[in-house]
Every structure is written in structure tokens, then in C-alpha cells.
Design a protein around this nucleic acid. Sequence first.
DNA 1: TAGATTGTTAATCGATTAACAATC
DNA 2: TAGATTGTTAATCGATTAACAATC
Lengths: 225, 225
Amino acid sequence: MATHPGPVPAPTLRRLPSYLRLLRSWQAEGRTGVSCTHLADALGQTATQVRKDLACTGVIGRPKVGYDLPELAVAIEKFLGWSKTNEAFLVGAGHLGTALLSYSGFKAHGLDIVAAFDIAPNPRGEIGGKQIFPMSKLADLVRRMGIHLGVLAVPEAAAHDVAQTMIAAGIDAIWNFTPARLLVAPNIIVENVDLAQSLAVLSHKLAEKRAQRWQVAPSPDPTHT
Amino acid sequence: MATHPGPVPAPTLRRLPSYLRLLRSWQAEGRTGVSCTHLADALGQTATQVRKDLACTGVIGRPKVGYDLPELAVAIEKFLGWSKTNEAFLVGAGHLGTALLSYSGFKAHGLDIVAAFDIAPNPRGEIGGKQIFPMSKLADLVRRMGIHLGVLAVPEAAAHDVAQTMIAAGIDAIWNFTPARLLVAPNIIVENVDLAQSLAVLSHKLAEKRAQRWQVAPSPDPTHT
DNA sequence: TAGATTGTTAATCGATTAACAATC
DNA sequence: TAGATTGTTAATCGATTAACAATC
């Protein structure tokens, strides 16, 4: 490991999945090597940034040649913590919970939702091959199965109470799909999937575009008259 | 408007929804005024940052008093483009599409999904009160209803083709829930909801925590022996 | 009034980009 | 070899934080 570790910038962490995704798709096409320029071109970024981002994985590239593709892919996965599987419990088997339970792509990202909980579990008791338990069983099963991660997909009004229940049972980290901002102890990890944030960016851009459309016609450019 | 506009930093844009959310909840409790300190304390940020973020709304606060709460809330909504409703079509009425169609919270954020499309529309033809049409009707309805925004919730493999179909039909902006990175013309707005990115942050933190746990016991601190 | 809070300018911090020697 | 690409250091850029005069 050439570079001393140090804390990895959050933007780097958020870009790594896109590199990995591309590497895996190229690997499927039979490629065995890759350079920063390849990655940068495909993602609309600079080669320097890609190179710096990849440094945190500890993989050493060779001048003129680039990186060994499979080695790099494995190193990114390892760095992200995707080579070890995190078993998780999901709470809230509504529409969104059902979608998350049914999505098969998480296992490639080190996530395995092993069971779900709901105040009113569906009588058939199963979604996407995962069993649905009543909330009353949560604490006991968290302990017995040594679960550290909870996926929160309940209605907003229940978010805080359910999060407290999860934490009391021993859950360490919460992937929060509700709009609620959870107030938790500093040793608890919370990662919010905030659709409002995403909508803010999207609709502000849309509003700007709308404004531009109206601005073009009204005032004819004086330099051309 | 005291400050000249200029482009708003993206981080500011992403923080505005959290201010608005808090303001609305305080408004429901009957408060009528608010200071940057209140907001900052509640959100674990600095008052200076809140003040600078709010500047883009054009609302003027009064020293010692703070801001008029309803005025500020309305101004943020206006700035984000949430006071005008964007009508959208959703494509892909699977589990995730169903969840998005059924969620009632989007209307507060200027989004109204008015209909959905699928290659194999459910025979009952309706989810969350929204009609489901076959894909073949998409282009015609986009034009007739003047739709600018598409919500993409199809399987990854179909993402690119469906996006092209949307754009060809006249859609301007895509809220992309698939893991695919869409290659589109620069005038098309794409906002990705990237769960892999979110999982990267989450599982890297979990991996770090796991590593810390093992590092504590093995090497006893030499300064205490 | 005095103290709290504003708007804004200057200083700091962190991340991105550019430059470049080393090298396969 | 010559040219492309690496790892790393320095320069730039942008966002956050600190400082402070103005003021209700």
C-alpha cells in the first residue's frame, strides 16, 4: 500500500460504485485491463480524478498499461465493504418495502435483506421469498441472528418509534427510506435515501429551464440590430 | 432582491428541503417566526450556513427578530419550483413503480404522477388511482397532455430504450430510479436516484465500524502499562 | 438601551484540476 | 525507443466557517 490511508473524501466514496459498475460490464465483454482515461471518458470525468479516487483501493497500476481489471474491481468491492454480506431486517412491508424485498440487485452490493417485519403482516407471510413477521418478534430475532442493519420503510409517522425499537434491539445502522430525520445516538449509523433532496435538484432545474424558455423571445438581442 | 442571483451551489439546493420540512412542522405547531439559530440547532448545522443558504430565496430577515416563518416557507417552495406542479408519466409499473404511484407525499414537492405505462399493464389498469396504459400509448399521450417529466422505474435492461422512447416523445427531464446511467443529449435533464451510491456510504461505514471493533482488544495501549 | 440576529466580506478548509517526473 | 499512463505534488477552485459592522 503506497499511499497512507487517511479518511476518504465522501465524494470519492460516492463515485466508486460507478467505476465498479463499468468495470464489471467491461469484464463481461472480455476486457482484462483498463486505464483511468477509459473510465473517465465513459463517465464524463477527468482521468486525474479517477486516478486519485482509485488510489484509496491500494491497487497499483502500471504506466502505459493501466490497471488489471478484475483486480481493480475486487479491490473496489472490498473497499466499499461489498465483499462481505450485511444481513439486514426490513421494517414496513408496504409498497416500498415490497419493492425493496423483491429487488435482487442488492446482493451484489453486500446487502441481504433476510426477513421483514410489519405491524399487520400479510397472511401469506412472504414477499420475494422473505418471511414477514409481526413487529413483536423483531427484538428477539435481531439478537438471535446477530443483525446489525435495519432498512426502514414504514410510513413517516411511525419512523421515529420504529427506529428506536430497532436500536433498542441492538441494530447499529439504519438505511432510512422515510422522509423523517432520525435523532439517534452518535454511534448509530444512519443513511437517508432522501427523495425530497433529489426532487429539489430536479424541479429547480425544470423551473430554470421553464424560465429560460420565456426569456428568449421577449427581449431581442440589441447587438444584432 | 438584495443579493445578485448567480448560480446556487448544489449543496445549498440539497439542504433547502430540510429547512422547508422543519418550517412546515413548526408552522403546524403555531410558530410564526424563526431564526437561523433555531434551524441550525435543529439540524446540527451552523447558523452562518443556514443564513447563506436562505439568501437565495430573496427573503429578508430582521436583526434580533429573524424571518417570518410562512413567508420563508413559501419562498423556499417557490425557489425549488415546488409551488408549480410538474405533471409526470411513470414508466414501469412493477413493485417500485407501484410504490411511487401510491405515495401521496410527492404533491407537496411539486410532483404529480398523472399516469403510468407498462409493457404488460395490469388487467385492472389502475394503481393508486392512476391509470396504467400500454407503452404504445406513451408518445401520443405525452404530446396531447404536454408532459415534460418522466419517472423511470423499469428493469435495468430496459432503461436505455425506454428513456429514448420518452425523449423521442418530447419528454424533457427524467427521474431515473434504475441503476443504468442514461446517455442523453445535454439539453435533457436526468436526475438519478442511485441506491448503490447510498449503499456505498452505508456499507463502507459499517465496514469501518467492524474494523474498529477488532482493533480495540488485540493491542493493549502501551502508555498504560 | 443592550443583546441577539442579520447580511456580507474575508479567511479557512477541502476537493478538483493541472503539472510533471518516473516508468513500462 | 517513443509515447502513453502512472503516482504525486502544487495550483486552482468552490464551499464552509469566522468575523464584524449594521440594526431592530
